[in-house]
């Protein structure tokens, strides 16, 4: 089955209500995992060490039935954008710096690996944690929920946005707008036919959502209760320690051992 960009992105980021080991982890453990992945991806500059980090992330993804498949879908969806950035960087490096082609390509490979690591970690968080759980995690460390909610709700709407864009794309094609033919500049211009209705529909959706939230007491008090307490259990400690240990090993190895790649 051929996946369109919109279908792929919408499906890959969708939360699924299942009871997997990743669903059962404390949201704080998963948030910490994302933060650690970002930190190690930035700290390590050697490709072999980054590949080790990626391998760890792939192992985490494998804990849940279809996360690897979704990861591939997500990367495929992002591929055109990543490719544009990589080509642009290579061209700029070659045109304006004295860095060799090999080194430039290696730098871009490292960047792509970093993106893959971050994508994997975020995918674990978003596919197995509800926005409410993430808010609960932030609230438990003293951050007021009214500040966090808008960002988290925005995350929840990403798959819906892609699904809406898909409908708009279909509606425009149905009246003869061809997004796949013509010069690149014309194709980019045609994208306004998707972008403008998407913005209009998103604004309407956001307005409805704000009204619904206000009418159900959002912001009624600075505090908020949570009907299910979250607990940092032994399994969360083991997960966090294991991830930290492997990431530390990657950093140490990158500093102390000769590069393999």
């Amino acid at each position: 089955m051929k996946w369109s960009f919109f279908d792929a992105m919408s499906y890959a980021l969708l939360y699924e209500e299942l009871s997997s080991p990743l669903h059962l982890l404390d949201p704080r453990a998963k948030l910490l995992y994302v933060v650690l992945t970002i930190a190690v991806s930035v700290a390590v500059s050697r490709l072999d060490a980054l590949l080790l980090v990626l391998a760890v992330n792939l192992a985490v993804l494998a804990l849940y039935r279809n996360l690897i498949a979704r990861f591939i879908l997500l990367l495929r969806g992002l591929a055109p954008f990543i490719a544009i950035i990589v080509v642009f960087n290579i061209l700029v490096s070659l045109a304006f710096t004295s860095v060799s082609i090999a080194e430039t390509v290696a730098t871009q490979l490292r960047s792509v690996t970093r993106i893959a690591c971050l994508t994997a970690a975020l995918l674990v968080l978003l596919s197995t944690t509800t926005p409410r759980q993430i808010i609960q995690a932030f609230t438990s460390i003293g951050i007021t929920y009214t500040y966090v909610y808008p960002f988290i709700v925005a995350l929840r709407f990403i798959p819906i946005l892609f699904s809406e864009m898909r409908n708009i794309y279909d509606a425009q094609r149905a009246r003869g707008l061809d997004f796949e033919r013509g010069r690149a500049i014309d194709r980019v211009k045609r994208l306004t036919a998707i972008v403008i209705p998407t913005i209009v529909c998103s604004v309407i959706r956001a307005k409805d959502l704000i009204e619904a939230m206000e009418l159900r007491g959002f912001g009624y008090s600075k505090k908020r209760t949570f009907y299910k307490p979250i607990k940092f259990r032994r399994v969360d400690v083991i997960f966090t320690v294991a991830i930290t240990a492997v990431y530390l090993a990657a950093i140490i190895a990158a500093v102390t051992t000769p590069a393999i790649l």
Binding site: E17, L209, A212
Partner: peptide, 8 residues
Amino acid sequence: ENQIVNLV
């Protein structure tokens, strides 16, 4: 569907 805030 525009009023649903949460995922579950």
